[in-house]
Design a protein around this nucleic acid. Structure first.
Length: 645
DNA sequence: ATAGGGTTAG
């Protein structure tokens, strides 16, 4: 069993190596350039690693390589460790080749004394981001693998997101009667979390309980994180509660799990307890909590946390910086977002993606393209998210040719288009009215379209009043078992706009029959440290009378300026949609000169969009409205989206 | 004297 697996892996590795190696080299050059600062996990403090020390060490290694090689394995190991820490790939490869060629590592010898040295090569290639060379080093060990050989291999494979190889070799390890230990369990737990497979998670946990490491903080925290990543939050919480010892990583893993699940109040409560318990929270902890503030647009709390990161001396962390860029952008403060980004002492790929996304969501399309160039000039390779952002930006601006160009550019950078990229392209084609081309594009997709692909087509068909394609897209969504209330409403709206009232009524009935209700459209505005929430036609707010009065008063001036209310919308019986009410309150409480910032959980309708443009023209106010997907900045009668959203 | 847990962006 082991032998055949062994052989097939060698075969696989040899095949895959050529392709993977070039990709890995690219990753390698990126990590190598930007590793001057990192977080010390034990103390939780951020420390600087000097680049001059690195290069000094590298020079020493180079000098030593030119000299006759030491024959003492221990001296060789210390040389290899230096090469690992400096990630000196070419020197390490030279050393490896030399040792193999000279017979220093006798490949066929059954009990070589140099297994230890070979183990170091597994680690060395992992550090150089070449996991398949780690694997080849493992496979050519001169003697049977030691528990450390297995752990080093599993570490390399799991760190490079190779779940099936990690699990295969873990199985082989167990078959070779090597028990799992405190090093191998966390590696396997990482890939199980990555796969988000609950049953694998439970069985790995069960296995870990039978080892002597069942109470080890490292092992328990890795299992906790695995449960959180598998969305088994009850299990994660139980483990956390019963752990004999907890550290900042245990806290962060649980906080991050709740943040991923959208359980915002749990995150804030846990963070408060962590501070109360005197846990030394670090940049990782902060990034999760700030993310929650961004998602809920809790600007006040987010700004408070920003202050705390400065106090804790964590504000220079690229993780904190990325989260803050996103926070300010999502709260509508694009200037603050740019300010944080510009002042970041060290940026990573996520920081660039954050600022790209911020620009795209606020409609600064030119800035998106410029930042994309700047990012590459700074030595960063665009990834999956970067291209998603570029395509979304093109879609928002209706730039079809640019979108097509970026889509084909993906293969140049070795980024495989995912379902979301296809959905973005369908959205783009649809928005500029190329409905049939969008349909053709879907039919020529090399992967199965996901719901959002058909959803994008349905939305586009609705905008361009293509009833037949809308019905076709809806049919596809039905077949996939999708029946979101929004989809029914879109379909009903398309039929109604085409005057096909009978079918519109049928679509609405289908929604009622399925027991679904339309998502309640809500808008909210933060004022005086309180979030004020409004529904459509809401009269429950304490200042409701004043709000309606000011809207009526401004409405007269708007109509005098040429605004004609559009009554063809869905809610003919409702005078004001929720965002109008929130803006009404904004007119009362937000000081002159300060933008009125309103958040909304669904898309803004045509009539409100037009009305707000007139409102800003008549009042001289600035309104920043965030809808489900993007920001609209209304100023002096125009909107940053260019009426295209 | 090699192997171990959390992180940000959509």
């Amino acid at each position: 069993m082991f032998r055949s697996l062994h052989q097939s892996i060698v075969h696989f590795a040899a095949l895959a190596l050529g392709r993977v190696k070039s990709q890995l080299y690219r990753t390698y050059s990126h990590t190598h350039t930007h590793k001057s600062q990192f977080t010390n996990h034990k103390t939780g403090s951020t420390i600087k690693q000097s680049n001059s020390q690195d290069s000094e060490r590298l020079m020493q290694v180079q000098q030593r390589l030119r000299l006759p090689l030491p024959s003492d394995p221990r001296a060789l190991i210390s040389l290899l460790v230096s090469l690992s820490t400096t990630r000196s790939l070419s020197q390490g490869e030279q050393l490896h080749a030399y040792l193999l060629k000279s017979g220093y590592i006798p490949c066929s010898h059954p009990c070589s004394p140099y297994t230890l040295l070979s183990n170091h090569f597994i680690t060395f290639y992992s550090r150089c981001n070449l996991p398949l060379l780690s694997l080849l080093s493992f496979l050519s060990l001169p003697s049977p693998p030691t528990p450390s050989s297995w752990s080093s291999l599993l570490s390399s494979l799991s760190h490079h997101h190779l779940p099936s190889l990690t699990l295969s070799y873990f199985r082989s390890m167990l078959l070779a009667r090597v028990p799992p230990n405190r090093h191998s369990i966390p590696s396997v737990a990482r890939v199980v979390g990555y796969l988000s497979d609950p049953s694998l998670a439970r069985s790995l946990h069960g296995m870990s309980l039978k080892t002597p490491f069942a109470t080890d903080v490292f092992v328990l925290t890795s299992v906790l994180d695995m449960y959180a990543k598998c969305s088994l939050l009850k299990e994660a919480q139980k483990l956390f509660d019963e752990m004999p010892e907890r550290n900042v990583v245990s806290w962060s893993a649980l906080i991050c799990g709740y943040a991923d699940a959208g359980l915002h109040s749990s995150v804030l409560n846990l963070f408060r307890s962590a501070l109360h318990d005197g846990v030394e929270v670090n940049d990782c902890t902060f990034s999760s909590v700030i993310r929650v503030c961004a998602e809920t647009t809790l600007l006040g709390l987010g700004a408070l946390l920003h202050g705390l990161t400065i106090k804790f001396n964590l504000d220079s962390s690229p993780f904190v910086g990325s989260a803050l860029v996103s926070l300010y952008s999502k709260c509508g403060l694009l200037d603050s977002s740019y300010k944080v980004f510009n002042e970041m002492p060290e940026r990573n790929l996520s920081a660039w993606n954050s600022v790209l996304i911020a620009s795209a969501q606020h409609g600064n399309i030119g800035t998106v393209f410029n930042l994309f160039e700047a990012m590459q000039a700074a030595g960063f390779q665009p990834n999956y998210v970067t291209f998603l952002c570029l395509l979304t930006a093109c879609s928002h601006a209706g730039l079809l040719d640019e979108g097509k160009r970026y889509f084909s550019l993906m293969s140049v950078y070795g980024v495989e288009p995912g379902p979301e990229h296809y959905a973005a392209m369908v959205d783009l084609l649809g928005r500029v009215g190329r409905i049939s081309e969008a349909l053709f594009f879907i039919q020529s997709m090399p992967i199965e379209p996901i719901e959002s692909v058909w959803g994008a087509l349905l939305t586009a068909s609705r905008i361009h009043k293509d009833t037949n394609t809308a019905a076709f897209a809806a049919q596809k969504l039905f077949e996939m078992g999708s029946c979101s209330p929004g989809m029914h409403m879109l379909l009903a709206g398309t039929y109604r706009a085409a005057g096909r009232h009978l079918e519109a009524a049928q679509a609405r009935k289908a929604m009622r029959d399925s027991g679904l209700r339309k998502d309640a459209g809500l808008s909210w505005l933060e004022a005086g440290g309180v979030i004020h929430t409004f529904a459509s036609g809401d009269q429950r707010h304490g200042r409701s009378v004043e709000i309606y009065r000011v809207l009526e008063e401004v409405g007269k001036r708007m109509e005098a300026a040429g605004y004609e209310p559009d009554t063809s919308g869905v809610h003919r019986n409702v005078r004001y949609h929720s965002e109008r009410l929130a803006i009404g309150l904004g007119l009362l409480v937000v000081p002159e000169g300060v933008p009125i910032r309103v958040m909304k959980n669904i898309r803004v309708c045509n009539d409100c969009h037009t009305a707000i443009k007139y409102l800003t023209k008549c009042t001289g106010r600035v309104v920043v409205l965030r809808d489900l997907h993007r920001f609209h900045r209304f100023e002096n009668g125009t909107c940053s989206c260019g009426d295209f959203w």
